[in-house]
Design a protein around this nucleic acid. Sequence first.
DNA 1: CACCTATATCGATGAATGTCAATCTATGTG
DNA 2: CACATAGATTGACATTCATCGATATAGGTG
Lengths: 116, 116
Amino acid sequence: MNSLQIVEAPVDASCCVPSVKPALSADEAQQRALVFKALADPNRLRLLSIVKAGDSGESCVCDLTEPLDLGQPTVSHHLKVLVEAGLLHREKRGTWAYYSLVPGALEQTAGLLESL
Amino acid sequence: MNSLQIVEAPVDASCCVPSVKPALSADEAQQRALVFKALADPNRLRLLSIVKAGDSGESCVCDLTEPLDLGQPTVSHHLKVLVEAGLLHREKRGTWAYYSLVPGALEQTAGLLESL
DNA sequence: CACCTATATCGATGAATGTCAATCTATGTG
DNA sequence: CACATAGATTGACATTCATCGATATAGGTG
């Protein structure tokens, strides 16, 4: 079944000409899909938006639970997904956990799209 | 002295100043999540990439099945998802179906991110 | 210490999703 | 017409995921 081996020839066009960009490899695609998976949920988009809209640049979980009309564990779960995707930064101060946008992360993700 | 009238402008910041953008509504978030759902799969990212990399600007299903190592129905399914997300355009000519990038769709989606 | 509060983690459950084999549709071609 | 081919659709199955209630952890306060 998976016995066929397509040995990539060492054709090295990588040096001078930008030429044609090759299509995404399976590994690259898998990697990039992770970020979009994190963005593929309306509540997570709202979380990012609320954090971004906050004037202090950061929000704690207690400020995020109410506007989303979700349980606290669910919000905590979504925030974790966003942190693991590299979109949010988490900082714990005292009893509270403050979440803020990772600088440039959204722009970088947007770049992933245009450079497909 | 205090007869001078500092006529306070009828504070209507809604016209000129961008002011603070409100956070995403539930409906807006739901809508935007649809596109990211379509992008949240490595094989669909590869499909977009392959179609984009093709020099003719379009690819037919038969050209997309092999590099992805997926069955034809599965590829057809993914293509449908991408079309419904507004990312791909489908044109049938004879027996073949040709898929091409919707012009500006990727850039517009990237814009969704930066304007969160 | 005991108690409260903010947040994270765990386990369960129902819904959504990716994949395939089988089948259907439509457009060729002899 | 009979047959072949490209592609879409259907139904089933396994996996992933969003959500919740219950519980754990950890910092603050008396």
